[in-house]
Write a protein that binds this DNA or RNA. Structure first.
Lengths: 387, 387
DNA sequence: ACGCTTATCACAAACGTTTCTGATAGTTGG
DNA sequence: CCAACTATCAGAAACGTTTGTGATAAGCGT
């Protein structure tokens, strides 16, 4: 039979059911239940991270005393405090943030959900968030939705499971339902939307001047002499698409230009949608003489295509885009853009979130708008030459 | 005096020293110590997150039973399991990863330290790491050193405090001492270096073909007819600088070209160092007819400057850079680069780390090199036209 | 019928902190 | 000298899990 792992006797050992799928034994002699561990299982593994208890044992005092000494509380004699500090150095003690967070019910961690770090906007926004976080004693946990609604949902689940103190969310392009956000609100976990916000729920938001930026860009095209202005957007259901379209329409309206649906091109914001859009526009009976792209990246893709086909920029077709970028500046011709200052958006968002975390009772649900700036470049000026 | 907060009597209350800096009282009647809380302190705050204990109470069973049911362990009757599952849904239970990690001694989180997400290389590498992490059940916690050694050190401290299961580190440009890494090793926390590795310590590393890439680029320039080749590097102490310089030298040597120190330009990798480098090269008595930049971004900055001064590219001066980028492709002239596949580097690094986490006894300290690829573009071809 | 066996569950300890409560020795003042 | 008071510390509880150990009712075979 089986030897008892406690008294080593063999005679008294009988089977005793199963525990978690493994055969269990019972030793009648020493009255002990046990299961056989596969011996390679786990060595004592004595984590070589010193704990508060280790310090306490080392000094022969109570763990609570060590804790208070380390945290600079009052009830500690200078002598004891000094000894604790020294021991902490000697044993290379590092506090376990997990235990600390579990105990305090606060993690000092902020969860960020973005569609894709590879988009310069998000990279920059993220970097500025990180900076603010460090300065204010927070940590940041980033998740990429990879532009997928289901992954986004999963990300938020994970961050909640990690008990982040708050969430900074920018939606994926395919996110159209927002139960997962309602859910966060129901648990009264502070959340701030930024950039790709959700208009259906009343959350604090930080956006850029989507309307004004689009308006300014299109107005600029009109002033430069463009009369048939195309617009390339993201998905039709996408909130940002809608707002930026409104800015486009408003500008046309101001100058008495009728809105023609044919000049509105929706895309899925994939890699080469710019070329497709250009293809569409150039094959129209009356191709536009100016194009506003919701993403400056798309404007550049279109310009690449235009150059391939010897379409003169800006004389035959001018381009403007939303969002600045080193590429916009260095591409030839350089692209006229509305700079929406990703760093400021990032800062504003995390500051608003931290404010809401600290004053939990009165969640500030204002929508902040970061002021942008029109940057006029070669892709849209001196058009008048053609006339 | 003070009313006792327990028995409400006033008579028996006397002072009793200080606790954490606040006056303490003692009630002789009910034998109770207390301090006065500022009433706005903390409402019960009953976190509205259901716990396992809540489920257990709700069902009238033991918490351990709930735990086993949720985790699909064996010792649970189908009926109980079903009830627990339903209760979990009803009460919207979410496991507390903090408690779970604390208990298991494993966080399933990987810490990543990078100098700057705004560099496309790191953004891409990070994105691919995230993907692998999700697929393998890990989470990622990212920290930016912002190219500062002290911040990098702090980052690693933080990640250790969070008890990440392992570290992925790419050093800041100013990191020259590596005690903080020794320290990580001393605690036998798995670590993998990538890209900007540290050659002084024996850690697992994932690099790209720094030597071969540089060699190929410079050889390409030579084959195209360049004879005086400048090289723009990062800081002199920077490991990557050294390796890439070696590749440069080896290529020159192969073709019998003498290495001239004057053609080696070190930079601090700041924003506009490319212009400065160009300034330096163009003002030499014998300006180079080809320049290899350690960062393609720098090559482009140089080309911008070259274009401003009407220097013909590539006829008068050819350019090549290390690392591909959409900018390299779309800039005019497009830049010849050695593509080092940031996504593959990211994947390889995290895979190696996870492997090391799982087999803790035998840390795999091999250095993996991700195969790169020379991409020849306009900035360096057809030079022969000039001869 | 009785011992072996199973299925199922409760209970307690543990993870590493923080904080509340209890306790002691010393100090002060009338 | 004694009550009131202070300074300082120990011990226990709590945070939310997981897992080892103890326990009970029921099934099975001889």
């Amino acid at each position: 039979m089986q030897k008892c792992i406690k008294c080593n006797s063999v005679d008294g050992v009988i089977r005793s059911g199963f525990l978690r799928g493994k055969q269990r034994f019972f030793c009648k002699l020493c009255n002990f239940h046990f299961i056989l561990e596969n011996e390679n299982a786990k060595l004592p593994q004595k984590a070589n991270q010193a704990t508060i208890v280790d310090l306490a044992k080392h000094l022969g005092i109570a763990a609570s005393t060590v804790s208070r000494a380390l945290n600079g509380k009052a009830d500690i004699s200078p002598f004891t405090r000094q000894a604790v500090m020294q021991a902490a150095i000697d044993l290379d003690y590092r506090p376990n943030l997990l235990a600390q967070s579990l105990n305090k019910g606060k993690t000092n961690t902020i969860g960020v959900v973005i569609p894709n770090v590879e988009l310069p906007f998000f990279a920059t926004a993220l970097a500025s968030m990180q900076q603010v976080a460090i300065d204010t004693g927070y940590r940041i946990m980033v998740c990429h939705s990879s532009e997928s609604q289901s992954v986004e949902k999963l990300n938020i689940e994970t961050l909640i499971a990690c008990r982040v103190d708050g969430l900074l969310v920018s939606h994926s392009k395919e996110t159209t339902s927002f139960e997962h956000i309602e859910h966060v609100l129901a648990k009264s976990i502070p959340i701030v939307h930024f950039d790709r916000v959700c208009n259906e729920i009343d959350t604090p938001k930080v956006i850029h001047e989507d309307f004004k930026g689009s308006f300014d860009l299109v107005e600029h095209l009109i002033v430069q002499g463009c009369q048939k202005i195309g617009v390339m957007l993201g998905p039709e259901k996408f909130y940002i698409s809608q707002i930026r379209l409104e800015g486009y329409k408003a500008a046309l309206q101001k100058y008495g230009i009728e809105v023609d649906e044919k000049y509105i091109y929706y895309s899925e914001m994939n890699k080469n949608d710019g070329s497709k859009a250009f293809e569409y526009f150039i094959n129209m009976q009356q191709p536009p003489d100016g194009v506003f792209a919701m993403l400056s990246r798309n404007a550049i893709e279109m310009m690449v295509e235009a150059k391939k086909r010897q379409v003169k920029i800006p004389e035959e077709m001018a381009f403007v885009g939303f969002g600045d970028d080193i590429l916009c500046e260095l591409f030839e011709p350089s692209l006229t853009v509305f700079n929406h200052f990703p760093n400021k958006v990032g800062e504003a968002a995390i500051n608003l979130l931290i404010e809401n975390i600290n004053s939990k009772n009165t969640p500030n649900t204002t929508t902040q708008s970061v002021r942008g700036e029109l940057i006029v470049r070669a892709s849209s000026i001196n058009i008048f030459v053609k006339h």
